[in-house]
Design a protein around this nucleic acid. Structure first.
Lengths: 333, 333
DNA sequence: ATGAAAGCGCTAACAA
DNA sequence: TTGTTAGCGCTTTCAT
């Protein structure tokens, strides 16, 4: 059976389009007509066509979200939070994946813009402002999470990656570590570079040299983190590994288990973004945590502010991170 | 600046609506006009309004997906797979969460149906056919993953939960275990009951009684799994725990770590759905795995078949699971 | 409280 | 190749 339209309702009830429309949008009807209409709606299984409605009203109460991959639990936790909060405010979230692929991400943005979302939340994989020229044409507010790119027309919420990284490495050094390998994620250029910057700064502050840097880069896959960790453990004399994001932390832990490496006796380990990891792995990992709840709350709050402002003024927010001391770093002084 | 429409393009170029539309949909133009049009599109930042287009074409090349929560890695892995496969075929996936809340799930279905998705993939949380009466009105193909509900008008892809559960418990019993606690998830009624059925059957086949059942039910949260596991470990003399889904498995492992319980010396453990768990936890968990890749491939294949069939005939598919023997079950014979 | 008519931005005949 | 026209299903004046 074909989908029923408002016109079918009119035919059934003898009412006019205008009347039916008004009722559907909360208007009043004479009791008799109301009953007839309700009945017709029920019988014909009528459902408003949001495409037709959206064409006129121009508001969809919908926000588009682009994440990297659903199985990145760090991002999924944030998105899930954001989705719940939006839902409570009567907004529908639509989630799409980029798969760490910039062109797919851009297509996703276009897809959303063609479909009149009211706002856009993106966990971007691009690295320069040219990647996001499309956003200059967007009439809706755009929010970047976990990345800031100079010159892109959008709000950004990031954490102080550089400072926490500097702090953590400084602390590692104070425990006697000088041979510290850092694993960076190529697919997250912004955070990776900030974290590397902190690493370098801690080295500098402690009188260490550039020759002391031990920098490894992976792409966003657990296997890739695993492989690099293996290389570090088996082929170098590093006393500590700093896995500087969620995926690489999982990869490193995976390797530690596989090779039965004693932590922190054989090597010290510092991770990033504890989603489930310290619940599942022993000894308890020393790890840096980003404030997921704060990020998602701020994202939603700012989104609604931007939605209501006439001339939007985009800001960048910097949230603080936390170093959680576990049992995976040895004092080798 | 207001969004440009096709009419604006006409004004700019002197061409007519029909011509512009045809070009936008792959038609040919005289070189001169093509250039003018391309230029106008660029200058005005024109983008097709899919709402207006969809109103006419009635096809959106979009499939709506409703999962439970993004942070359920088992489901997220499947969805992520499905999304990638759909994307490769030129279809856009829209993902929404139910949060294990039936009414939110139904609202999600309505949302999708009002927006003309071409098909629907759902990981349902309902338990009876009355919950899904709305699907009787759906003109688009619907696919349930990980759940089968008698009488609901949809395709279903499930795995043989009962058989693998029976097999695993039978194996546990053969290792000398008689005091086996099973943790079931209330929020996943279908799989929980099938798995419980397998548990009971194994008991029966081994001459054990109903009094021997040790059944615990949780809701879909890691904390809930943790709490029940604690109860089993500290208040009962169970020799084995069967965590019968992903979330409860994580909860159990979490507890084992927290209380420093030796596995399998203190208690034997059997889990379900290994996503990351055996990578992060030691000793290697004995665990039942469902064929994620096969599920997502079958889902996409059937979806396109249903999309092309005139009179859809819904089927139910039963895939096989696998028991992966790790080191968390002791032989106590 | 209800109806008539215009039009949102686009596609799809059909004509030229 | 290009233009004209009707209409997708709805909302929104403006009348009645």
């Amino acid at each position: 059976m074909k989908k029923a339209t408002m016109r079918d309702l009119c035919d059934e009830t003898g009412l006019s389009l205008g009347t039916v429309s008004k009722y559907l949008n909360g208007g009043q009807l004479k009791e008799k007509n109301r009953k007839k209409l309700d009945e017709a709606i029920e019988r014909l299984n009528y459902r408003v066509d949001e495409y037709a409605r959206g064409l006129i009203t121009n508001r969809t109460r919908t926000v588009g979200i682009i994440t990297t991959r659903l199985d990145n639990l760090f991002y999924s936790s944030i998105i899930s939070d954001v989705e719940t909060k939006l839902y409570e405010k009567g907004y529908a979230a639509i989630i799409k994946e980029s798969g760490y692929d910039l062109s797919k991400e851009i297509k996703g943005i276009e897809w959303f813009l063609s479909r009149r979302v009211d706002a856009l939340i993106i966990i971007p994989v691009g690295r320069k402002k040219e990647d996001y020229e499309i956003l200059n044409e967007a009439e809706v507010p755009v929010l970047f999470l976990d990345s800031y790119i100079e010159g892109v027309r959008c709000e950004s919420i990031v954490t102080d990656n550089e400072e926490i990284s500097r702090h953590a490495i400084d602390w590692l050094i104070s425990k006697g570590h000088k041979k510290i390998s850092i694993i960076l994620d190529k697919d997250n250029p912004y955070t990776a570079e900030r974290r590397l910057e902190g690493y370098k700064q801690a080295f500098k502050e402690n009188g260490m040299e550039e020759e002391d840097y031990r920098i490894y880069r992976i792409n966003e896959s657990i296997d890739s983190g695993y492989a690099v960790a293996k290389q570090i453990v088996t082929e170098t004399d590093s006393t500590a590994i700093f896995a500087s994001n969620y995926i690489s932390t999982v990869g490193v832990v995976y390797l530690l288990n596989e090779l039965d490496i004693r932590v922190p006796e054989d090597i010290s380990v510092l991770g990033f973004d504890d989603i489930l990891i310290t619940s599942l792995y022993r000894p308890k990992l020393t790890i840096i945590n980003q404030p997921i709840e704060k990020i998602s709350q701020l994202a939603v709050d700012r989104l609604f502010e931007l939605l209501s402002e006439e001339n939007k003024e985009y800001k960048t927010h910097l949230l603080e991170n936390e170093l959680i001391i576990g049992k995976t770093v040895a004092d080798i002084n």
